[in-house]
Nucleic acid binder design. Structure first.
Lengths: 141, 141
DNA sequence: ATTGGTGCAAAGGTTTTGCAAAAGT
DNA sequence: ACTTTTGCAAAACCTTTGCACCAAT
């Protein structure tokens, strides 16, 4: 059995392009669709969803449940690291998503394990807050 | 202007009852509806949703976006503490939800602020993992 | 009697699925 | 040619809203 073939289409090129341009944010299927429209491509939403689920299976992108309660948001995986080894912190103002990929992750895991008997699985875990920039803007007001 | 009146109805009594019985888990509107059915009450889903949003406004319960991507989950607030002062950690196996209400929260906040310029807002923040019990069960297999 | 609560039906929004047609290789 | 992608339409979900009727106080 062989690896599946993979055809290059404009729709996919542009979807990936959009995800790349927004690698520090999560985006919705609708966002992508809007971008495609703006590019003059007419691509059905179904196609967007289908490609997204494929990218999820290939672990090229991560899928989070949207804080809006309805539906999903997506983001390109950072190339180097598996996203299930760190948690994510998202700015509720600008949408920026930090991959909390630092030494503190170990402290957090250790604390949860030792004090709460809890074994952290990072994938899908999101904390919310305000990023540096948005904080400053807020204060400036 | 006076506080709104509040009528006691069976539906509400049982909804609160179910939330109390499951104060260590998040539940969906459908879960509640099922419980009401099992109790022999016939209550419309709309009623459940309406009462839930009221409870949210009154801050009696917290509303999280479901990790399933579609819809919301709810949980009774722990009486003493505001849920926006700590984060939540949820077991992906049994659904148990821990309110991470301990000293470590300060470390976490401090780290995010100092190293990442990020100001944590706890409400809605959930981490996922396996709780103690489910961990043991897993290992027993 | 008055105010608040409920059921029903419909609408809103997002995601998924089946099938036949279209496009990439 | 062969296989993958796509569009369309429909369905599946979950949640919200409007309105008329019912129930609690």
């Amino acid at each position: 059995m062989e690896a599946k073939q993979f055809y290059n289409t404009k729709a996919r090129k542009y979807i990936l392009e959009y995800l790349s341009q927004n690698r520090d944010t999560t985006v919705t299927a609708a966002d992508i669709s809007e971008y495609l429209d703006a590019c003059g491509l007419s691509v059905n939403l179904t196609t967007v969803y289908r490609y997204l689920s494929r990218l999820v299976k290939e672990r090229k992108i991560i899928k989070f449940s949207s804080e809006k309660g309805a539906g999903w948001v997506y983001q390109l995986s950072p190339d180097e690291k598996a996203c299930d080894e760190h948690i994510h912190v998202k700015c509720i103002n600008c949408g920026k998503l930090l991959h909390l990929d630092c030494g503190f992750m170990n402290d957090l895991k250790a604390h949860l394990a030792q004090k709460h008997g809890f074994c952290l699985k990072c994938s899908g875990s999101i904390l919310y807050g305000l990023c540096d920039e948005c904080n400053k803007k807020d204060r400036a007001k």
